[in-house]
Amino acid sequence: MEWRRLDSHASLPLDPPRRANYDGVWIFRMKQKCDKCDKPATIHLTEIVSGKKIEKHLCEDCASEEGITVKANVPISQLLEDFVLQTSSTEPAQPELECEVCGMTFTEFREHGQLGCPNDYDAFDTVLTPMLARAQDGASQHVGKVPQHAGTAQQRQTEILRLRAELREAIAAEHYEQAADLRDRIKQLEQQ
């Protein structure tokens, strides 16, 4: 195994005053010499200050001389938060995405870090996929276990979700006949 630095999670000693201007640190796989000496660079920083991009490639010793410290612990929730925040500061404003099944908006997801239903993966596809790639080391395709009855189940899943959403609305609107009908269809689909 090669101990390879993908991500330094480094923070500069003087953080820029506003987070929006600070474009954090992302992951580069590269072999490069330190900017200051001949040792291999293991800490790679990309910083954007007032619209100017500054790159630094340093070995551990020179980095610590520069006062760059590597954060001791980055919990997963932080990782998610980081890339969510980055998305918000760098990408141009775009129309709000909303899941037609559960009603969750992408903004809501960004605030809480939790999706509302399985269909959100499709509903937020355009913004979620690049985020996923960053969190998942570039991957965007599952290669692991597949449930024994996956194929048919998938379309049925979305259908059931949709019916459940309709059911909730029907009950709210006191359309009980329609609700009973929906409930039967859900039961039927679930038993297939």
Binding site: L80, P118, Y121, L128, M131, L132, H142, P147, A153, R156
Partner: peptide
């Protein structure tokens, strides 16, 4: 496997097992 014989889990062929937080999706 035992549970999968009795219930359907949320799954997509592209993203694998679908989880509430995308940091767990896939396997």
């Amino acid at each position: 496997d035992l549970l999968e014989q009795r219930v359907d889990f949320a799954f997509s062929s592209r993203f694998g097992y679908l989880t509430a937080c995308p940091t767990n999706v896939g396997t």
